[in-house]
């Protein structure tokens, strides 16, 4: 039971933190249509996060989505390190989204067959959104990789910044083995090869080479984060911390 709660929180935290990051673009995007698109992704992700939190709240009992999202600390958050990385330029945000959506699509494909009906239902609903995020971000990776010399260079920088945070997606956390065994969760190591194949195809079109032998950071899933998360939570949780026990 505890493993399932942690697993659900991990799924919730990653989508919430990435939503929070993407929402920083709202009102500041490079093109009005794309400002709308990234905000839309942010909205989809917070919707998914809420579904997972509400389910986690039910499993935990005597709590709710906001208490879980707003009153836990840095060491309790289980999101992927990738999600908390700064937006950087538009290229970096695009690449972060692409890496994540490619992973999330593969994840949801399997999670929709979970023996846990609730997790299966959330994944089945969300995969439609994810396939849109994947198409949108993949197209942008190609557009920027192939676009101008400057955009190509910026994409290389983005790969440099972010590649080292992709490995963690495929390393199971302690709470993942039990849920995989019960067929409620997805075995993430099995997603690594298909993910890499897809990334190679997109990168080839974008004229970007896939890096090799890069050191991979991990720890986010177990609550050991980069320094960025503390500041994200400071903003995210400000109101609930300053005005405890209030309805909004």
């Amino acid at each position: 039971m505890n493993a399932k709660i942690d697993y659900t929180l991990h799924l919730a935290d990653t989508t919430l933190i990435l939503s929070q990051r993407n929402s920083e673009w709202c009102g500041h995007g490079p093109i009005l249509e794309q400002d709308i698109a990234i905000t839309n992704i942010s909205l989809d992700l917070i919707g998914q996060a809420r579904n997972f939190y509400q389910y986690a709240a039910k499993l935990i009992g005597n709590t709710d989505e906001d208490k879980i999202a707003y009153l836990r600390t840095e060491r309790e958050f289980k999101n992927l390190l990738l999600a908390e990385q700064p937006n950087g330029d538009w290229g970096q945000t695009i690449l972060r989204q692409y890496f994540f959506s490619q992973y999330q699509y593969l994840l949801y494909q399997q999670l929709q067959n979970s023996k846990d009906e609730q997790l299966a239902a959330i994944a089945a609903k969300a995969i439609k959104e994810t396939s849109y995020h994947l198409r949108w971000s993949g197209e942008w990776v190609i557009r920027l990789g192939e676009g101008t010399d400057e955009s190509h260079q910026r994409m290389l920088n983005a790969v440099n910044e972010l590649w080292g945070y992709t490995g963690e997606m495929f390393i199971p956390a302690t709470y993942e083995s039990p849920v995989v065994k019960e067929n409620t969760g997805v075995s993430v190591d099995s997603l690594k090869q298909p993910w890499l194949e897809k990334v190679k195809t997109i990168f080839e079109e974008a004229t970007i080479t896939v890096p090799e032998k890069v050191f991979m950071h991990s720890g986010g899933k177990e609550g050991k984060h980069t320094e960025h998360l503390g500041f994200i939570l400071t903003e995210l949780q400000y109101m609930q911390r300053a005005y405890p026990n209030s309805e909004w």
């Binding site: 500041h28 995007g29 490079p30 093109i31 794309q34 330029d89 538009w90 290229g91 557009r143 920027l144 676009g147 101008t148 400057e150 955009s151 910026r154």
Partner: peptide, 8 residues
């Protein structure tokens, strides 16, 4: 900041 994106 969006100029390079629109150009690309």
């Amino acid at each position: 900041k969006g100029t390079w994106v629109r150009e690309a």
